[in-house]
Amino acid sequence: MKNINILIVGVGGQGTLLASKLMGKIYIDAGYDVKVSEVHGMSQRGGSVVTYVRAGEKVFSPVIDRGEADVMISFEALESARWLPYLKKDGVIISNTAQIDPMPVIMGNAQYPENILEKIAATGVSVISADALSLAEQAGSAKAVNIVLLGIAAKALELDKEECISAIRATVPQKTIEVNEKAFELGYNL
């Protein structure tokens, strides 16, 4: 397999870390070398966050730069736009349709761009969008947005469904397994 670069972006507090940890585990279980780069500290406080997952025969750098990501999993529409330059021209973006106003927009000092996902699709990249919050709530918890998106990504990346589910079982807290499995299914079967 050629190295695969997955960018996971969102707003601090949305659960991007768990998604990246799970993605890393799925590739390791499949026998690949993996590097996952996380962000801790200041940027978790509602700021724009990005984590990188890289897998392949041998991975050196833990980071992904502009024009290098094969797939972007985005938890929020504006963040999809912010990190778009990191996606390859023929890349795939899996984006939550949720819109979370950043403070400059709340304060009226900036505008939240309109029809972001349509604009992104117009650049030629493949866009798979979903209302992950509704699906997560359907699964039983608003917090399962990350697992819904992971489910959609697993399908797009042609990952083995059972291996993904066993990685989820091994990683999430015991009492949330059922909800998370359901969330994964809802994303996978979208």
Partner: peptide, 17 residues
């Protein structure tokens, strides 16, 4: 350098809060 794409619109910053 690698090629990259971007949107032709202002993207508001999202500082931590």
């Amino acid at each position: 350098e690698k090629e990259c794409i971007s949107l032709d619109c202002e993207i508001p910053a999202r500082p931590p809060v």
